[in-house]
Design a protein around this nucleic acid. Structure first.
Lengths: 94, 94
DNA sequence: TAGATAATTAGAGCATTGTCTAAATATCTA
DNA sequence: TAGATATTTAGACAATGCTCTAATTATCTA
C-alpha cells in the first residue's frame, strides 16, 4: 500500500491514471498529454508498475498500458477506510 | 489536495493521523509512539498543518493536536472519487 | 539485414525529504 | 526573575525523486 500511496502523490502519475481510466494507451499516446521526455514518462510508468497500478501489454513496437483494476480497487478500499474511520469517530462522539 | 496526498504518503504521518483520529494528543504524547526526535515530529506536524489536516491548540506548555475534520472529509471525498471513477468505467463496459 | 520507430535504461544534475543535534522560543512554577 | 519543561526552528547530512540527454533494447518493414 505504501508504494500505491507514493504513486498517487505525484500529479503527473495521477494524470496518467486518469487518462488510463478512460482507455488503454501506448507510452507515446500518453506522452502527448505531457511536457516531459519519454525517459521521464518511463520513470513514472515504472513507479506505477512497481505499485501494480498499471499493466503493460506489448503490441508490435508499442507498449500499451492499462489500469490494474483489482489493485486500483484495493487501494480505493484502503484509502476510503483510512479516511472514513474519522467519520466513525464523529458518530461515536455525537 | 496535492499537499494532502503528499502528507498521507508518509507512513509516520499516517500513523500520526490514526492516533489523532482516536483522541487529541500533545506533541510529547504523540512522540511516545515513535522512535524519532522531537524535531522530526515537529517536521511531520508542520507538513500535516500545511495540508490543514491537523489543528494545534496550546494548553500551558503543551500543544495539543487534533484532526481537522472538514479537510479530512474533503480529502476523503476527493480520493474516493478519484478511485471510483474506475468503477464507473467498469460499469460502462459491462 | 539495415534502417526506422517505440520504449527503457544509464548516468548525471538539482531539488526535496526525513533525519539528527543544537539553539531558540514560549510557558509554567518556585 | 531563574530554572525547568515543551515545542519549534536552524542548519547540516544522506537518501530519494524528477528531470534531462545519450545509449541500449525490441520490434517492424523495406
Amino acid at each position: 500500500m505504501q508504494t500505491v500511496l507514493e504513486a498517487i502523490s505525484d500529479p503527473t502519475r495521477r494524470k496518467i491514471l486518469e487518462l488510463l481510466k478512460r482507455s488503454e494507451l501506448s507510452v507515446g499516446e500518453l506522452n502527448e498529454h505531457f511536457d516531459i521526455s519519454g525517459a521521464s514518462m518511463s520513470h513514472h510508468l515504472n513507479k506505477l508498475k512497481a505499485a501494480h497500478l498499471v499493466i503493460p501489454r506489448r503490441q508490435g513496437q508499442s507498449i500499451y498500458y492499462s489500469i490494474n483494476t483489482s489493485v486500483f480497487e484495493d487501494a480505493a478500499q484502503y484509502v476510503i477506510e483510512f479516511f472514513q474511520a474519522q467519520g466513525a469517530k464523529k458518530n461515536e462522539q455525537s
